[in-house]
C-alpha cells in the first residue's frame, strides 16, 4: 500500500484542498452554514431595504439599487474568481483551479444578466429609457458575452488540461474589461451615475442607504460563495462520471 502522506504531514492551505476528496468533505461541511448565513443576510437586507425612507432625488425607485448594485458587484466578483482560477491554472498549476474557474462562469453570467435587467428596469423611470449605449452599460453587456463565450469554449474542448489552459488565457485577456467597466464612469460622461461606494475616501452615500446596500452586498456574496462551492462539487462529480464512463467503455471493448 502506498504511504498516505495525509496522515504523516497534513499539507497546509490551498495545497490541502488539492485533493478532491478532502475538498468535497470540506464543501459538505461548509455549505449548510453558508446557506444559513445567506438566508439570514437576505432577510435582514430586504427588511432594511424596505423600511428605508425615500431618497429625495430618486424617490421610491432607489430601492432597486439594493438588488441592482450587488448583482453588478458579484458579476465582477465572479469574473475575478475566474481570474484567480486562471492564474492558478497557468502559474501555480493547482489541480482545482480550473474547477473553480469553470464553476464560477455560469454564476457570473447569471449575475451579469440580472444586473443588466435590473439596471434597465431602474433606468426607465429614472432617465426615461430602457437602454443607452454608453460606455458602462456597453462594457457590462460585453462582460455577459465574454462569460457566454468562455462557457462555450470550456464545453467545446474535451481534454480537461487543454481546455483549462486555453480558457485561462482567454479569461486573462478578457479581464481588461473589468477596469473598463469600473472606470468608464470616470473617463466618459455617461448616463450612469458615478461611483459613490467604492471610491478612495469615504463613500458619499448616506448611512441609511449605505447599510442596507452593504448587507445586501454581503447577502449576494454569501449566495455566490455557497453556490460556487456547490458548483465546484458538481464539476468534480462530472469529472468522476466522465472517467468512469471512459473506464466502462474500455471494459466493453476488452
Amino acid at each position: 500500500m502506498s504511504i498516505d502522506t495525509n496522515t504523516i504531514v497534513a499539507p497546509k492551505g490551498l495545497t490541502a484542498l488539492a485533493n478532491p476528496t478532502r475538498f468535497l468533505a470540506l464543501v459538505k461541511m461548509l455549505v449548510p452554514w453558508l446557506a444559513v448565513i445567506t438566508v439570514v443576510l437576505f432577510g435582514i437586507g430586504l427588511w432594511m431595504g424596505f423600511s428605508v425612507a425615500d431618497d429625495y432625488q430618486q424617490g421610491r425607485t432607489v430601492r432597486i439599487m439594493f438588488v441592482h448594485v450587488p448583482a453588478v458587484w458579484l458579476a465582477m466578483g465572479a469574473y475575478m474568481t475566474m481570474v484567480s482560477g486562471a492564474l492558478g491554472v497557468l502559474v501555480w498549476r493547482h489541480p482545482l483551479a480550473d474547477v473553480a474557474a469553470r464553476a464560477a462562469a455560469p454564476l457570473g453570467a447569471g449575475f451579469t444578466f440580472l444586473g443588466l435587467v435590473t439596471g434597465s428596469i431602474w433606468g426607465r423611470p429614472m432617465w426615461g429609457t430602457w437602454w443607452v449605449w454608453d460606455a458602462r452599460l456597453t462594457s457590462f453587456l460585453v462582460l455577459l458575452i465574454i462569460y457566454l463565450g468562455l462557457m462555450a469554449l470550456w464545453n467545446s474542448i474535451e481534454e480537461p488540461a487543454k481546455s483549462a489552459r486555453m480558457a485561462a488565457v482567454v479569461v486573462l485577456v478578457g479581464a481588461i474589461n473589468i477596469p473598463i467597466i469600473k472606470f468608464s464612469v470616470e473617463w466618459f460622461t455617461t448616463l450612469h451615475q458615478s461611483a459613490s461606494v467604492t471610491r478612495l475616501g469615504a463613500p458619499t452615500m448616506s448611512a441609511e442607504f449605505l447599510y442596507p446596500l452593504l448587507i445586501m452586498g454581503l447577502a449576494f456574496l454569501f449566495l455566490f460563495l455557497t453556490l460556487h462551492l456547490m458548483a465546484m462539487r458538481n464539476e468534480i462529480l462530472r469529472r468522476q462520471i466522465r472517467s468512469l464512463q471512459r473506464r466502462a467503455a474500455r471494459e466493453v471493448l476488452k
Binding site: 462594457s139 460585453v142 458575452i145 465574454i146 463565450g149 467545446s156 488565457v169 482567454v170 478578457g174 474589461n177
Partner: peptide, 23 residues
C-alpha cells in the same frame, strides 16, 4: 489560436473576438 483545432471554430472565434473588439 484557441479555436484552430475545433470543429465549427469560426463561430466560437467570433464570439470570443467580438467582445474584445467592442472598445
Amino acid at each position: 489560436a484557441v479555436t484552430v483545432s475545433l470543429p465549427r471554430g469560426g463561430l466560437l472565434l467570433s464570439v470570443l473576438v467580438l467582445p474584445l473588439c467592442i472598445p
